[in-house]
Amino acid sequence: MKAFGNYHPATLMIYFISVLLVAMFVSNLVLQLLSLSGAILFSVMLQKRSEILGNIGFYIPLFLLIAITNPLFSHNGVTPLFFLNGNPVTFEAIIYGIAIAVMIVGVMIWFKCYGEIMSSDKFLYLFGKAIPKLSLVLSMAFRFIPLFKRQLQKVNKAQKALGLYSSKSFMDKLRSSSSVFMAMISWSLENSMDTSDSMKARGYGLKGRTTFTLFRLYSDDIVLMTLCVSLMAITFTGIATGLTDFHYYPYISNLNRSPSAIIIYIAFGTISFLPFVIEVKEALAWKYYISKI
């Protein structure tokens, strides 16, 4: 077993797309809660302790803001609790606000995990086959960005040593930074022509280009992919057959608690908690392994 990020990019992409489809577009409260808790657990495993605190400080106020403001925009619902500025504040709108907050925060955390896991080379690999030329442009850009940034620092320093950044006035500062930025642009354009020479020298543009990659599909990947696809198939069947239908307006519908609905919840719950489980297993395996050495 390996940590989640070590799976094949295709496996990971299928996983994230499936989870995000449900997280973004299905309003069933149970599925939403499962998605949010899966996301939180996964991100806790991925992040350092200090980052986690910072995230709590960001997501909780966001959650409250979304939940509280919803009743102000939406006056649907059949159970008015009180009136504000002559508009009814309904029970349904409050619940819907909470549900929406669960969804938005959940999706945001999932995307954060996605950002941690899907590094640029995995992304490039996935699109390298479908759009080879664009993915090369992307790869070049990933090469250029640090290179240009460094050049900008160098120009900055050189100009500072020429006394350029000495003035305290805002206009002078603006002027000098923009001329430094311009110098960097000019250098970048000029230098990139060498890069195109280097590409031509190595035969870029010949017919029948292939794409090389370090990623390989292992049996672990196929297992995870199959698991993911079959659980997702179950979930989507449930969604398509209306088992998970859920609405907040005009009144909150009853949660479907039939056995078949529960199967759906279990299926999606498994998907949602999968990365967390894999990470924990990996961490434990290491601990066990180290204690044995």
Binding site: K133, L136, V137, L138, M140, A141, F144, I145, F148, K149, L152, F181, I185, S188, L189, S192, M193, T195, S196, M199, K200, Y204, G205
Partner: peptide, 17 residues
């Protein structure tokens, strides 16, 4: 190729900015 590289440069510049 030069145009390709130039697009990459402009993309990098806007990301840096």
């Amino acid at each position: 190729i030069k145009k390709l590289v130039l697009i990459a440069v402009m993309v990098s510049l806007s990301v840096i900015s």
